[in-house]
């Protein structure tokens, strides 16, 4: 334990740089994925035969490709084909944002499509118009229903930023590997890494579990 603390103190600047890169990538991936994914999900329900179908097909294909392969494909062959060079930091953001967008879109689309027709009838009979039904009934209901799943996706996205180390992005995992190669104390170094991630993700996953339990009655 002491060794771990000593390592954190000694290499704090390196870890902070890595942590900062990881957090920057994560936040951008979260914002882009949740925003565009939600819009795509809603459009997918409205235009189910065009956008909805396309989104379903892309999600299906992306679901079958390992994240690392997708990242490598966008970092190497894709850039070679287009004769461009993009920094690994942005390639990671692009890759994970695309994944996040389609995963979130699928969640939103399913939730909107499966919203019980009975509640819409009930609200209409109570005199609510379409906008009021969306704002006062559908949106809060669907948000409560999908939020836990979307939060879990975001945690997975954060964990997936570790793959950026394989295309030379100085994020947390790459920093930890570099520190380990200097001092060769893998247990302490990777435990430090685990602690960083636990500190960030435990409250988030805890919140998701709480939400899931709290709103389990919404089927």
């Amino acid at each position: 334990m002491l060794n771990t603390i000593e390592i954190i103190i000694k290499y704090r600047e390196d870890f902070l740089i890595g942590l900062s890169v990881t957090i920057q990538m994560t936040i951008i991936i979260w914002i882009v994925g949740v925003t565009i994914g939600s819009i795509l999900g809603i459009l997918g329900t409205k235009y189910s035969r065009s956008i909805g179908l396309l989104s379903k097909i892309v999600s299906f294909l992306l679901g079958g490709i390992p994240v690392l392969v997708f990242l490598y494909w966008l970092h190497y062959p894709f850039q070679t084909i287009l004769n461009i060079q993009i920094d690994g930091f942005y390639t990671t953001i692009l890759t994970l944002s695309i994944l996040n967008i389609f995963l979130v879109a699928e969640q939103v689309r399913n939730a909107v499509e499966q919203f019980p027709r009975d509640y819409i009838d009930s609200a209409e009979v109570c005199g609510f118009n379409s906008n009021e039904i969306i704002r006062k009934i559908q949106f809060p209901y669907i948000l409560r229903q999908i939020l836990p799943a979307i939060i879990f996706i975001q945690v997975v996205m954060m964990h997936s930023t570790l793959f950026a180390s394989l295309i030379s992005v100085d994020e947390l995992f790459r920093i930890a590997s570099r520190v380990n190669s200097e001092i060769y104390k893998p247990v302490e170094v990777y435990s430090t890494l685990a602690i960083f991630f636990l500190l960030i993700t435990l409250p988030i996953t805890g919140f998701a579990y709480w939400l899931r339990k709290r709103y389990a009655f919404i089927k």
Binding site: Y119, S122, V125, Y141
Partner: peptide
Amino acid sequence: FKYKGSQQVGIVFQNINLIPNWTNEENITK
């Protein structure tokens, strides 16, 4: 179902269909 002084048609459904994330009071008053 719209309100014009009062409502023309009101329904109590067989499946009841109260809004699940509103309290009973909110279901009546909203």
